[in-house]
Amino acid sequence: MAANHGPPQPTMPTDFVSDDSVARSRATHRAIETVFRMERARIVAALTRFTRSVDLAEELAQDALIAALRNWPVSGIPDKPGAWLITSARRRAIDHFRRAKMANGKLALLGIDADVEAMAEPEDGMGDDMLGLMFVSCHPVLSPDARAALTLRLVGGLTTEEIARAYLVSEAAMAQRIIRAKRTLSDACVPFEVPAGQDRADRLSSVLEVLYLVFNEGYSATRGDDWMRPQLCQEAMRLGRMLALLAPNDAEVHGLIALMEIQASRLPARTDAEGKPILLLDQIRSRWDHLLIKRGLAALAKAEAT
């Protein structure tokens, strides 16, 4: 970790940098990139609320990573890396709007409060931001394919290359799908919000549908396929678990989690050594994943109690 780097090293011409320090700096970079990957969705969510544009939010998040890669090897990884990254990205957003304002006074057009300084501090309500991001990326204005791709990109934090591999399409095609989806959102002026009432119920069912589509895409993959495909099951389950905390009073969410955990618990028993499918009644039950069954039943109980 960067925080533990040793005594200062004498400066040497790059040709003579020891293997040790190269390895250390690589490890630091990997650690920073890992932190960024873990925090990315929260940064994009906060910045989307701030800028009203997922595209700009992603760009600013990327800039924040570059700032972290420049600063953290010296200062160490901060205690609250997520807050650091969001603050850094917000400063850049403010600079961006100032330039835009000076250029053509468009700030009001963008719907941004002129008093941008007041918005510079990270606030609570991070959970609502994440939920808002899920609602945006699963908006009904998008096709089901586009919703899945955008959700994996923005909320899951997967790279375009990983999503492309999981869906067995070229990276260029997936990049196009994501760009088009973002354009559709901006053309339709989709607001960044957590809707209420019947609207919320409808929009939530769209989110659940997307998660189940992603889960099924991975579940239908057989052994021997690229590891990214089964990974889709894990990612759908992870996003479902996240959603359960963001919308704990919606029984449907717990219901979907129960379905995914219990279905997934059978994955290890579902195929034989050659990868041929084994029917449910012929499966060896000891191969079922009992931790997932336990989690599935707990989610079911929650769904019933909600």
């Binding site: 991975g218 579940y219 089964p230 990974q231 099951c233 894990q234 389950m237 997934a264 994955l267 290890p268 050594a273 060896i284 000891s286 191969r287 079922w288 994943d289 009992h290």
Partner: peptide, 18 residues
Amino acid sequence: PSEGIDRFREMGIAQDRP
């Protein structure tokens, strides 16, 4: 894959997937 691993599998341990 091996005969030994198949037997471990039948004990129902060590399942990371999905």
